[in-house]
């Protein structure tokens, strides 16, 4: 088993009457890219801030590389953070921002070495030659990369990223997702990213930790979370799903829209389906590579179906008001706790 670079052990954090984080255990492995995913107010940022040292846990301990760092202030922790709005120093040049961490060391590295390190770090984030600029002269994406370079130049044990892409526009965000992944692979530093965007978490991470109301609900690879969510909450947050009444009280049956088969009639459905119902098309959205149908069935109520373009060859397309048949295989349905 790989060594954990950073760990939360039974950590709770209370702000006055509010419990922000409740008895969490989290272990981040060396070299992995882990995301903490959850809606705002779920305690994900507080967890990150406790790792960085900006907050101290009310209970429990924080370990970095096997050392208990609970109570150790931020400036003595071997981790670095990329802030949501970058928090670049407006009075310093790009290069001075980037070498800020190195200049805090004692003894301070000679200026030639600082210059070399700045060049190298800026090269790494593809900002070569911009060292003398002021940070406010750069675009949002460039500022983001300066923030990355400023943190990574210190070779932190863990790089903490607090919603790093939230301030970027959609196209840039997609680009930066790739870039972050590549960067992480290149430098081999452990990345811990906090986000509310499930797509971001799933696309970049080795593992995703889903949080809800201060608690960790599930940790696993993106595929595990998608395929085997341990609760309705996770299934709903990670991807889309249809929830039907479960076999017993307090349970639901979850079926992913893309796992549902569609046909003009029940007879035309594939063989071996566990469930098959007649339904009516309420709405239909053509997305391009797939079409999304909203169906209504007397027995199951309304549900979503995603039909890939390829299927149209066999079953054709449907219009609003059409009577259709829908069904799924037994392994497509998962019984989950209804919470």
């Amino acid at each position: 088993m790989t060594q954990a670079v950073i760990e939360l052990r039974n950590v709770s954090k209370r702000f006055g009457e509010t419990l922000a984080v409740v008895d969490n255990n989290l272990s981040v492995n060396a070299g992995e890219f882990l995301s903490i995913l959850g809606p705002s107010g779920c305690g994900k940022t507080t967890s990150l801030r406790m790792m960085a040292g900006f907050e101290q846990p009310t209970e429990g301990e924080v370990y970095i590389q096997g050392t208990n760092v609970t109570g150790v202030p931020a400036y003595r922790r071997p981790v670095n953070m990329v802030f949501q709005h970058y928090a670049l120093f407006p009075h310093l040049s790009v290069a001075d921002n980037v070498t800020y961490g190195l200049r805090q060391r004692s003894p301070k590295p000679p200026s030639a070495e600082l210059a070399r390190a700045a060049d190298e770090a800026l090269g790494m984030v593809r900002l070569s030659g911009l060292g003398r600029r002021r940070t406010y002269e750069l675009s949002g994406g460039q500022q983001q990369r300066v923030a990355l370079a400023r943190a990574l130049i210190n070779r932190p044990a863990v790089l903490l990223l607090d919603e790093p892409l939230a301030a970027l526009d959609r196209k840039l965000r997609a680009e930066m997702q790739f870039e972050l992944q590549n960067l992480q692979r290149d430098v081999g530093v452990t990345f811990l990213l906090v986000t509310h965007d499930q797509e971001e978490a799933l696309s970049m991470s080795d593992r995703v930790c889903v949080m809800r109301e201060g608690r960790i609900v599930q940790i696993g690879s993106p595929r595990e979370l998608y395929d085997r969510p341990n609760s309705r909450y996770v299934a709903d947050f990670v991807g889309k799903s249809n929830f039907f009444a479960g076999p017993s009280a307090g349970t639901v049956t979850s079926v992913r829209p893309e796992m549902i088969e569609l046909a003009p009639t029940e007879k035309k459905l594939p063989q071996g389906l566990a469930t098959a119902v007649p339904a009516k098309v309420l709405n239909r959205i053509f997305v391009g590579d797939f079409t999304q149908y909203r169906l209504a069935s007397d027995r199951l109520g309304e549900f979503l179906v995603v039909s890939p373009r390829r299927n149209e060859r066999d079953v054709g397309t449907f219009e609003i008001g059409d009577q259709v048949a829908a069904g799924w295989r037994g392994d497509a349905a998962q019984v989950l706790a209804d919470n």
Binding site: A52, G53, F54, P73, A74, Y75, R76, V79, N80, M81, F83, H85, A87, L88, F89, Y100, G101, Q104, R105, R150, A151, N154
Partner: peptide
């Protein structure tokens, strides 16, 4: 003054005293 700049400084290893002088 953006308080996050002070956190950023601390995060990058500056003691409170150094943060005061540099930020």
């Amino acid at each position: 003054l953006d308080k996050r700049l002070l956190e950023a400084s601390a995060d990058l290893g500056a003691t409170p005293w150094h943060t005061f002088w540099q930020i």
